[in-house]
Write a protein that binds this DNA or RNA. Structure first.
Lengths: 241, 241
DNA sequence: GATTAGAGTGAACACCGTTAACAGTTAACG
DNA sequence: CGTTAACTGTTAACGGTGTTCACTCTAATC
């Protein structure tokens, strides 16, 4: 496919890609703090002000980098999801969750930049439209869709509306459309799955589990089994890792 | 109590406290990025090089600040734990967990600095001796001790050694002494409690739950109930918040 | 009272993100 | 085609940062 209009636009797009690639290398080699405008420019043989032709500021470059990382991770997970045509939805969910962990452990600097940085101001007016937030939403949607498919294929036992308090119930109801018609109790379990998976992977990737476990892999698998059971899944295939 | 030797040493200790206090104010007002040597010095009416009489580097100041924050948080949780002499151990655990959440939400900048920063290199040789790591261990011990007391008072049903895989079992056994003789299955559940609590609070404090919940309080309570049940606890008192 | 350790200063260095004014190249248009 | 405009890159500079060094002054010590 021959994308990109005139020669100039293509060259421009290529340069932008090179800048982000150089920033990515800096990130990998020296962490988020090493991704400086000057360091990136140096790597490309450019002077720092030249980068301002392509990004409004250092922050804009970081945002673009984060967006790309989310999209890359989303792509990886989608490939895992669609990898085996014979796999059932539950197995896909297992594999994607494990895939997220592997990606996080294999890309600690990237993962730290994406998930370790506290969200600046989630209540800002333009936050919803920010490209990094949208990329994060596309990423989260992978899990949401899988859980919704698990539910659609075989509804799992979940708390009744009475079990959830009225306050929580009201909030979960508001997300019913996004969760493709799942009842509040099922959304609650989906949220449960996500928060546990997130906490687990963050703790391991950020090294906050070393005091308790040398290799958190086995613990992760055990937790995944518990979480899968809550969603009515059978045991996952034994060939993980 | 009259601690501190000669007048000079006392003055020095007081200055160190003032520096950390100024750094804390900077942290609260402008986030971790605003805690600069120059900004702190400005607040104290000093020149930046003066701070080097008290801290080896900017990083050393940050480390000391983090250690203090951990100790402060630990103190707050200990006060909550020992607040009501009539409360049973399970209630204390509930209250302390809820207290951690409240503190995190009430001190977002401090919490972000403490927990949002990925641990630099947990495998470094001197990592164990670093003061911030030790303070973090003291903090974690509050929860560990409470769970151990819950177990000692009324052992809760937990996975058998066979349920846990051999790999996980071996690692949990190594932590048996630290967990005051609890069996591997019970340590597994204690770890479970901690990782879920950690993930939950981090996600809420870092604003990564806003897409799903406007007010995560009710969700937190529901999760705490589940987690308490896993530890054999009764319902917590209704007067939370 | 002389000596010495400590606290604080000003000047300087190297780095950072960012802006402005300027030059060369390349596409578009009459 | 020649002109014009837009785009890409430069150099110079500003204010900011953490950090070091040489220096002064003060206060505790022998």
């Amino acid at each position: 496919m021959d994308v990109g209009g005139t020669g100039r636009d293509r060259r421009r797009a290529a340069t932008i890609a090179e800048i982000k690639s150089a920033a990515r290398l800096q990130l990998i080699e020296g962490g988020a703090a090493a991704v400086g405008l000057r360091a990136v420019a140096r790597r490309l043989g450019l002077t720092p002000p030249a980068l301002y032709r392509y990004f409004d500021s250092h922050d804009a470059l970081m945002t673009a980098l984060i967006s790309d990382l989310y999209d890359e991770l989303t792509g990886v997970l989608e490939e895992i999801r669609d990898g085996d045509p014979d796999a059932d939805v539950g197995t896909r969910l297992y594999l994607v969750a494990a895939g997220l962990r592997i990606w996080a452990l294999g890309h600690p600097a990237e993962f730290g930049l994406m998930f370790g940085t506290p969200v600046p101001d989630p209540l800002a007016l333009n936050h919803q439209q920010r490209p990094d937030h949208q990329a994060a939403m596309r990423f989260g949607a992978v899990f949401k869709e899988l859980v919704a498919q698990v539910w659609a294929q075989q509804p799992f036992p979940c708390p009744s509306d009475n079990d959830l308090g009225p306050v929580l119930l009201k909030q979960l109801r508001q997300r019913s459309e996004y969760f493709e018609g799942m009842p509040p109790g099922a959304i609650y379990l989906a949220l449960n799955f996500w928060t546990r998976l997130y906490g687990l992977i963050c703790m391991e990737a950020f090294g906050q589990l070393h005091w308790a476990l040398d290799d958190a892999g086995a613990y992760f698998e055990a937790q995944m089994l518990e979480m899968g059971e809550a969603l009515g899944l059978d045991c996952p295939p034994p060939d993980w890792e």
